[in-house]
Structures are given as C-alpha cells and as structure tokens.
Design a protein around this nucleic acid. Structure first.
Lengths: 161, 161
DNA sequence: TTTTATTATTGGTCCAATACCAAACAATTT
DNA sequence: AAATTGTTTGGTATTGGACCAATAATAAAA
C-alpha cells in the first residue's frame, strides 16, 4: 500500500529555498517551543517523541501536542509514530535561537556571570529578546564565533555589520 | 460608623521593618504584575483603579483582579472603592523592578541600541532576569546612577560590590 | 507469525496568567 | 435624593502548558 513520505524532498523546497531571515522578529515562538527547536537542531535528523520528552522533561503526550503545533506552523515535519524533523524554515529559526542563546550567554559572561550562570540566565529570558537586538549586540561584540556555551554563526546578522 | 483603615501604620510594620532583599530572586512576579508595581511606585501614594487601567491599557475589572492577587501576596494594600498602595514589601520589590529595568536598558544601550529601543527591549524580558544577575551586571558597570530611562539606586546591591 | 512489549497519540481535564463584558454596587456630584 | 461616575463581582474566553487514562501503532520475542 502506498504511503506518502512527508520527508521526501519535493519541488516545493526548490521554490521556497530563499532565506527568510528578513521576516524573523525572534518573538514568534514561546520559550518552550524554542527549546523544542533547539533540541531538534542539536540532534539533527529524525527525532523520536520519547527523546524530546526525556530531554525537556515533559509527558510524551505534551510533546506530541507541541509538535503538532510546530508542524501546523511549518517549523517541523511530523510523521505520526515515526518521528519529527525540522523543515528548512524550522532550521533557520532553530539556528537563530541557538545563536541568540550563545550571544546572550557571552554577553552576560562579560558582566561577571560564570559560564554556567550565564547559560542558565540566558535560557530564562532569551525567548523575549528580538532578533534586531541580537543583531546589534552581536555586531557590537565584533561578531564573535565562540561563546561560553557553543559556537556562533553569522548567516543571519552579517548584513548588519 | 467605624471604618478600619488598612493604610494606617500599625506595630506590624515596626516588627517587620528589616530589609527583605536577601530573599528576593527577582522572579516572583509575572511581567504584568511587575508593571503594576512599577507604576504604583512611580505614582507613590494612593492610586485609583482607573488610573492603573488607563496606564496599563486593561479593563478596570482586570485591574481589580490583579490588585487582589497582589494584595493576597502582600505587595499592596487595597481598600475597595478607595484605592491601592504599595506595602513596605511592595516598595522594595517595585524599587528592585525599576532598577532592574534601568540597568538592563543601560546595558543594552552599550551595544548600539538607542535609548528607546533599549527601554522597549528590556521591558519585554526583564521579568525573567534574576536579582543575582542584575547585581553582577550592576557591579560590573560600576554601579551607575543614571540610565537611559531613569536613575538607579543601590540599596539592594551595594553589598555585592 | 502471532503474541507481547514498547512507544506514540488521542481525548479528557486542569492550571496559571491575562483579558473582556454585563450586572451590581459604592461613592461622588448635582 | 437622584443621577453620574467609578469600582467590583461573576461569568466567560484564550493561550500556553501540563498530566492521565485509554487507544493505537510499531517493534521485539517467542
């Protein structure tokens, strides 16, 4: 019996292959959903519901529901019972979210917070910091490539240099 | 007819006159409640429901309910139909909230954000930044007294110098 | 390959924070 | 005292998040 594969590349991705960063405000997703996307990007491929639940310490049913939300918004592709993975759009957002976390952590570390403290603190408020602010902070710090909790890429903010 | 005055000083305040800053994490109140306290501190005395509603752009009934919450938690004293004012505890928290906002705004302005941008940005995430982080940032900046959107006091963080 | 175990999803319920509306109530003004 | 203004109550709604029990699908074992 035929089964449509949601993960198969289609001509759609060729049509929709442009960078969408111009439209990102950074405030589109709730803190918890940002966590989902960052984790999905870290794993990289197809991710199981249980893995997400374990990582984020939530019930699997909660994960399924959140994943459905993210799927409806176009950040992930989800095949029930098989797994979930980022869409191209999801990857761009997740990449920004990781960068934002790293830039804010690095910034905080410059004010006497330890790496650990900076990381924990940034995680608490990062979802409410706009991309426009991040681009400015990143530029003012000279577009650093290394933070206290990971590397920083500049695909999205170099244009603001 | 006798009416008990909730705003009258009683021996309670003499007993409870110590600084409670040691116990503040800065994460006790939701963003909206932080706004209420900051506004109440700005006005200073007895504040009417309508004034709060106008300032925060919410229905008066919403204000009444939020004020009841804040009253239950001991941040304000509320006499129905008369007005609301900060308790001593509320003043300490409100003072910290204002300082936190000003310190974060000042910090952001050091990364190329305009005063206006810094203020707006800080307002969005400040409720999720801990007092411990603020104390460190404040210390690292040399305990500035002037920010881009107000003066900064140091009653609560000088001990960390 | 049929049973068993594991994993995932659905449907239900719940909570916190925030908000509005209409009705009732209190205070103030006339 | 009546009318107006301001405030509160009670009800309802929404958004985001969470859990549980029951069902369904997949994978593992016999």
């Amino acid at each position: 019996m035929f089964k449509f594969n949601l993960f198969q590349k289609t001509y759609i991705s060729l049509v929709n292959n442009g960078c969408v960063m111009q439209e990102i405000t950074g405030l589109e997703l709730s803190p918890k959903k940002v966590e989902y996307l960052k984790f999905l990007l870290k794993i990289g491929g197809l991710v199981k519901t249980t893995d997400i639940s374990t990582e984020l310490n939530v019930d699997p049913s909660t994960t399924t529901k959140t994943i459905n939300d993210l799927s409806d918004s176009g950040y992930v592709d989800h095949v029930p019972y098989r797994g979930v993975r980022l869409t191209d759009k999801g990857k761009e957002y997740a990449g920004f979210f990781v960068n934002r976390h790293n830039i804010l952590s690095l910034m905080l570390s410059h004010y006497g917070l330890s790496s650990e403290e900076a990381c924990v603190e940034a995680a608490r408020f990062e979802a409410f910091v706009s991309k426009s602010a991040i681009d400015k902070i990143c530029g003012a710090m000279g577009h650093p490539t290394v933070s206290v909790c990971g590397r920083i890429g500049h695909d999205s903010c170099r244009s603001d240099v």
